[in-house]
Design a protein around this nucleic acid. Structure first.
Length: 456
RNA sequence: GUGGUUGUAGCUCAGUUGGUUAGAGCGCCUGAUUGUGGUUCAGGAGGUCGUCGGUUCGAGACCGAUCUUCCACCCCA
């Protein structure tokens, strides 16, 4: 081998155990999605560039993988373009397709494109990989899976309530106890921006506020100043920095800040409704927490915003997120269609479960019994038994070669196969099977019926 | 995209200020054991030191580039 082959950074190969663990998570998520009435759809890995570009802000555009046109992709680039060295201008000429960046925007496109076939309110889920040209870190990949559930065509706040329940149901089923579902409302953020006279700087304001628990009050204020938010405005924010206590207490102090803002008060009202409903319905293992600093960069959210944090002590970015968007489909020409959705980060949930040792042991159960191969005659008899076992749903295999017994036993051992069957000359003559339990070392002679009932 | 960090046997890592044939533990292979794996004992294989280039009489070590890992920004699942 001249040089070891490799895969691009931020991508991974998955072995059998990893695949089993991943589908364990996926299946639990899938089951809950369907339990809540969501139907699966799939969309292509790549979309037309104009479907994706401009939907995630400048930062997002930079992180979208663009696909080079096939054929003579330089023919549309003029000499002027070359000399201009204008990146975006040239990119649009040599690339017309791009890998999807998330599942929400392609879903919005899907809804608009198929609006006449869809029965609203439309609840769909989608579990597919997405790609980001990001610089990888732990829990941060360039190819990863998102598991999204969305409902469009309903403005009811019961949808938000159900999504909180859905988060709780999935993480409870995964035995991941103590996740925190953080909730905020974009309207509250707009309201605050309005009160401090920074409506036009909403994004800068929320991005700065989002960093509060990370860089502290002073640095946040500094950043706001540098973005041109007035000193007077910042001082009005003071109560925000010392926001404490339970849901109700926080809401009360928020009200005092927002009493002049209609949007802000509307946001509070929505939050209160969700909190009251959840209090009544109860959560099994998750905690619902108001977090005013929760911003989420995506600029399409308009109402509730969610983010899920791993249980305390696990260092991992958010393992889920979502929110309500009122205008997303209008970008594609279908106005007045409100949607709300949540997403699970499969790869991060995997890392968290791994760290906390929460994968069930039975997950890697593969073959249950291996028949040792003593030679052609014996193997043929074994294969008949193997066929019989398989017909009864027992995962059974015959070692293909009549290799040394030690080698065959070791093979069973390494693959964690719990039983081995020995059929030599003696068994062949008496029509019996010697079944060995690899864990205890015990073995017994059985006829085919007994073998079947033991292994079933 | 910015700044930093990492790369030596299948795995986890040693390797002194540049100086002979690059080491350990675990794993792997063979045998003790021709119908019995995990334990034990004895032996053995395996590395162009991430890659390419440079400095030097001499580079695993120094310099440059590049790829990769992880981290902090940015952003996010």
């Amino acid at each position: 081998m001249a040089q070891k082959p490799s895969i691009p950074k931020g991508t991974r190969d998955f072995n059998a155990v990893e695949v089993a663990k991943r589908s364990y998570i996926m299946n639990i998520i899938k089951e809950r999605f369907e339990l809540y009435g969501f139907q699966p759809i799939e969309t292509p890995s790549f979309e037309n560039s104009d479907t994706l570009m401009g939907k995630y802000g400048d930062e997002g555009d930079r992180l979208i993988f663009k696909i080079l046109n096939s054929g003579d992709y330089l023919k549309k680039v003029s000499d002027e373009d070359y000399t201009s060295k204008d990146e975006t201008r040239i990119t649009s000429k040599i690339s017309e397709k791009a890998l999807r960046y998330d599942l929400t925007v392609p879903f919005a496109r899907y809804v608009v494109q198929h609006q006449n076939e869809i029965e609203f309110p439309f609840k769909r889920y989608q579990i597919q990989p997405v790609w980001r040209a990001d610089r990888p870190q732990k829990g941060r990949f360039r190819e990863f899976y998102q598991c999204d559930a969305d409902v469009v065509g309903s403005t009811s706040l019961f949808q938000e309530v159900e999504f909180v329940q859905l988060y709780d149901a999935v993480f409870t089923a995964l035995d991941l106890k103590g996740v925190t579902i953080k909730i905020n409302n974009r309207k509250i953020l707009s309201g605050i921006a309005e009160v401090i006279g920074a409506q036009d700087k909403l994004i800068d304001f929320t991005v700065a506020l989002d960093k509060l628990d990370k860089i502290g009050e002073e640095k946040v204020k500094e950043e706001m100043r540098s973005k041109g938010i007035s000193e007077d405005g910042i001082s009005k924010l003071q109560p925000l920095f010392s926001l404490e206590g339970d849901f109700g207490t926080q809401v009360e102090s928020l009200k005092s800040i927002l009493n002049t803002s209609e949007v802000g008060l509307k946001g509070i009202e929505e939050l209160e409704f969700i909190d009251a409903s959840i209090s009544k319905l109860g959560l099994k293992t998750a905690n619902l927490q108001l977090d005013v600093t929760l911003a989420r960069g995506l600029n399409y959210y308009t109402g509730a915003i969610f983010e899920v944090a791993a249980p305390e002590g696990v260092k991992m970015g958010s393992i889920g997120g979502g929110g309500r968007y009122d205008d997303l489909t209008s970008i594609f020409g279908k106005p007045d269609t409100s949607g709300v959705g949540i997403s699970f980060g499969l790869d991060r949930i995997y890392l968290v479960l791994e760290e906390l040792n929460l994968f069930p042991e039975t997950i890697t159960d593969a073959t249950k019994v291996l028949f040792i191969n003593f030679g052609e005659k014996e193997a043929m008899a074994c294969l008949q038994a193997v066929t019989n076992l398989r017909q009864h749903g027992v995962k059974a295999e015959l070692y293909p070669d009549s290799a040394k017994m030690k080698k065959q036993m070791t093979h069973a051992n390494r693959r964690n196969i719990p039983y081995v069957v020995l059929v030599g000359e003696e068994e062949l003559n008496s029509g019996t099977y010697t079944l060995k339990n690899m864990k205890t070392g015990e073995q017994e002679k059985l006829n085919i019926q007994e073998l079947l009932s033991t292994l079933k």
